[in-house]
């Protein structure tokens, strides 16, 4: 760069013009925001999963955690997320717990206080209460993992329409479980309200949970 003089100065705009624009634009922006707010309030919440219409009481059950017996009714008044999985699972189960942990993290402390994740093993032969406890708390210290006898797990799974079966594995893995990999959400009134499929991201889950906490 040199100090060569610029040939032609651009004509300066009239000094009061920007303010005039602002005077016109501001009410428009405010009107837009008010409309947007009203529009959003008028829209029903879009859930990321399948909504269970009507009243469908979530059946109570009691299973064992490494910190004592756990019943669904212990969490009355909270939003409970129920997941049936197994700790031997390397892909889908840890991903789901990771996503739920992310959703809970998105909530305020007060909101998170009223949310409980319960991980029910469908592989009680390999998942002891101790293993489950350590496993779920890796994702969030508030998560609870429960197990029981084959019969107890079977009857809870049946109550919630969860399918599972030991499928073929390899020499190294032994059997691998096939299982319904949805997240069931019980509302504050103890009703089964929402079924979230695998693959829903944390922010969408958080939005559903927040709505159900209102």
């Amino acid at each position: 760069m040199t100090d060569t003089p610029i040939a032609e100065e651009p004509t300066p705009p009239p000094s009061r013009s920007p303010w005039r624009y602002a005077l016109v634009a501001l009410p428009l922006v405010i009107a837009g925001l008010v409309f947007w707010w009203g529009y959003n309030r008028a829209q029903p919440h879009q859930f990321s999963g399948a909504v269970i219409q009507g009243v469908s009481a979530a059946p109570d059950f009691t299973l064992s955690s490494d910190r004592g017996p756990v019943s669904l009714s212990d969490y009355e008044g909270k939003v409970v997320l129920l997941y049936f999985g197994y700790t031997f699972c390397p892909d889908v189960c840890p991903t789901t717990l990771f996503d739920v942990a992310g959703a809970v993290e998105d909530l305020s402390d007060d909101e998170a206080e009223d949310v409980q994740l319960v991980f029910v093993t469908i592989d009680p032969a390999r998942d002891t209460a101790e293993r489950l406890g350590q496993y779920v708390r890796h994702f969030d210290g508030r998560f609870v993992g429960v197990t029981g006898t084959e019969e107890e797990i079977g009857s809870v799974a049946t109550l919630y329409g969860i399918y599972y079966r030991a499928g073929e594995g390899t020499e190294a893995t032994g059997y691998l479980m096939e299982h319904t990999a949805t997240l069931l959400v019980v509302d504050r009134n103890g009703n089964l309200k929402l079924v979230i499929p695998f693959g829903v991201q944390s922010d969408a889950m958080a939005s559903d949970i927040r709505y159900m906490l209102r």
Partner: peptide
Amino acid sequence: GRPSPAVATNGA
């Protein structure tokens, strides 16, 4: 791969 609980037998 994702961080995995120490107690988990397997990872991906």
